[in-house]
Write a protein that binds this DNA or RNA. Structure first.
Lengths: 212, 212
DNA sequence: GCAAAATTCGAACGACCGTTCGAAATACAA
DNA sequence: TTGTATTTCGAACGGTCGTTCGAATTTTGC
């Protein structure tokens, strides 16, 4: 992840080590916030764990809200970039969706703290920061929704509302995974993604048991 | 919902109006907490909105944590009771699951604030209060998991792990609904539940479009 | 080695928080 | 009406919080 760090405070220049430190600081903060919640996390504690004074924190982040924003914005931007690549890689709609499911679960297995924050603390943001995160989230939703619409067939579909609901069901399955997924217990993400795709395409009930 | 109010403070007696007021207070608190988050909600604000002094709040609730616990425990207990009745009502596994899906979505459409809190603020509880809520949640999980196991067929199933995953997928769909469901836009919960059941049983892809 | 810029610190400010507690007010039973 | 238990209040306490700011320190460019 990481990509470009966004030191908001200093105007003119900043050393490479500073950008790197901001990244580390952000990752460490994500771990604490994911565990304790954003409101319950004190900047003093974050600084103490990373041996930065309270005042020093404000050299890296404009405010506590800015810190939360950067975690969410960077995380979702990185996820979107990865998944755009996965969607463009071609293949049938089924193959593309499998890559997206696998990619989503894999990304969040690699960044559980950040993703947990994106899920739980979205509404802790306000105003412009909230909106800017929402823009990225919507682009990601559209990306997945389009592949699902392809999969379901754009002609014989039951209507936009149905497509939307199926997409939201899929996001529900994906986003709820952080409540239970553990690689040791549940196997590699590719296997879970395959189970999920199978449910979406074929359902979970053996044909002989179906009432209709 | 409501059921028996649990005034923890007074030892000897309390008037009916007091129990009733505790209920109203709890519901009003749920609305604020659902919007602002538990940590960000101040007891002072809750009291002010309901014209109860800060000190007066402690006549109804032993602590701020106790307030959160009561919201979660009462809500999940009521949901469990409703759904146990729905599961016992008989019919095929498919019919019972449909009632559970409908019941879950319906309950949460009637109590969006409380359910949002149950989802977002579970980990704001600690120790015994956390454990007591978890006991109810686990019973509810088991209830749904059993019906799904029935539906999938207890003989030809692919293993416990697969059953568990399907159940967790279903809970994902259900619990994510509060992120998007609006009756005006998405229709009655029964219709959404039917769509969900259809996905679980048959999948979402028309047979002619399936690769395999 | 020197000045300028970037980085770090520590102290302090004002605000808000959950909780306690004893007194005041209210409602009920006799 | 009197006495008792229930309900409500208001003030205060000790803490913690995000943020600011000027000084001290370190690094960089020359």
């Amino acid at each position: 992840m990481a990509a470009t760090s966004v030191l908001t405070r200093p105007r003119k220049q900043c050393r490479d080590a500073t950008l790197q430190k901001a990244d580390s600081l952000l990752a460490a903060a994500a771990a604490v916030i994911a565990e304790k919640g954003f409101e319950a996390t004190a900047l003093r504690d974050l600084g103490r764990r990373f041996e930065v004074s309270l005042g020093g924190m404000y050299y890296y982040f404009a405010s506590k809200d800015d810190l939360l924003f950067q975690i969410q914005h960077r995380t979702f931007t990185a996820l979107l970039a990865e998944q755009e690549r996965a969607a463009e890689a071609g293949g049938t709609a089924e193959a593309r969706l499998l890559r997206l499911l696998s990619g989503h679960l894999g990304f969040f297995a690699r960044h559980p703290n950040e993703m947990k924050i994106c899920t739980f603390e979205l509404e802790s943001l306000e105003g412009e920061l909230y909106d800017r995160v929402l823009v990225v989230r919507r682009r990601y939703f559209r990306l997945v929704a389009d592949v699902i619409a392809d999969l379901m067939g754009r002609r014989e579909r039951k209507g936009r509302s149905h497509d939307r609901h199926v997409t939201l069901f899929v996001f529900g399955m994906l986003n709820w995974a952080f409540m239970w997924y553990q690689s040791a217990k549940d196997g590699p993400v590719e296997a879970v993604a395959a189970e999920m795709l199978n449910l979406i395409v074929h359902g979970a009930v053996p044909r002989k048991r179906r009432a209709s």
